[in-house]
């Protein structure tokens, strides 16, 4: 069903996943669409947060970053978490997973979730069911601001923000399959309406 076919399958090769929080508008379309995917319908694998809604409308939606050396797999006592040749880190293997939550605690990005009713860790597998038949991952297809994007590197190159896939967590250096978009020249960002307003009367008032 849909637009699968050899042409489209071929086209999916060379596509990469990019996450750009500066584009995110907090609409949660990704979160809602993820739970519509046939293989895990009713369960969303998207991590979404308003970062500090009191101060800003900034929001961030994340998929799994698919680490080159996945911490979740390294700490798994049951050897239940596998990374495929395509670099995608899969949900735990159901027969092996003991639901111990080691991966949940260890992942520096906070991605894996235990689903108690299934006694299994499940996570974003970058829509293997879709990409394998030539469709883009569901979240990146629907995302209205393309904060989540599944495109070729040359298509991302003309964006204002630039891709990076190197993260530091203390001394742990992590490289990932998924890229985050970061400002080419980071400038300070003002977040209070007061900084843009003319009347001086408000500046003098105390705050709640």
């Amino acid at each position: 069903m849909g637009d699968s076919g050899s042409e489209r399958e071929r086209l999916m090769h060379g596509y990469e996943f990019y996450v750009d929080p500066s584009r995110c508008i907090g609409c949660q379309s990704c979160l809602n669409a993820c739970e519509e995917c046939e293989t895990h319908r009713g369960q969303s694998m998207i991590n979404f947060d308003f970062i500090d809604r009191k101060g800003t409308t900034a929001s961030a939606a994340f998929v799994c970053w698919h680490c080159d050396e996945p911490t979740c797999a390294m700490v798994c006592p049951a050897d239940a978490i596998k990374k495929g040749d395509d670099g995608v880190v899969q949900s735990s293997l159901k027969p092996r997973c003991i639901g111990c939550s080691n991966c949940v605690l260890a992942c520096p990005f906070g991605i894996p979730k235990i689903f108690p009713e299934r006694e299994q860790m499940m996570k974003c597998d970058m829509c293997y069911d879709r990409t394998s038949i030539g469709k883009r991952p569901m979240c990146a297809t629907v995302c209205p601001s393309q904060a989540l994007a599944y495109v070729r590197p040359e298509q991302i190159a003309w964006r204002r923000e630039k891709p990076s896939n190197v993260f530091y967590f203390g001394k742990q250096r992590i490289t990932t399959k998924v890229h985050v978009m970061v400002p080419a020249n980071t400038e300070s960002i003002s977040l209070d309406v007061l900084d843009h307003i003319w009347e001086e009367t408000y500046a003098a008032l105390p705050e709640a």
Partner: peptide, 22 residues
Amino acid sequence: IGFEPWEEFPFNHGMLCPKGVK
């Protein structure tokens, strides 16, 4: 019973907000 993005439509190329998804 559900939806599937329509990527060929030139205005939104499959993009949808949560209202469209649901």
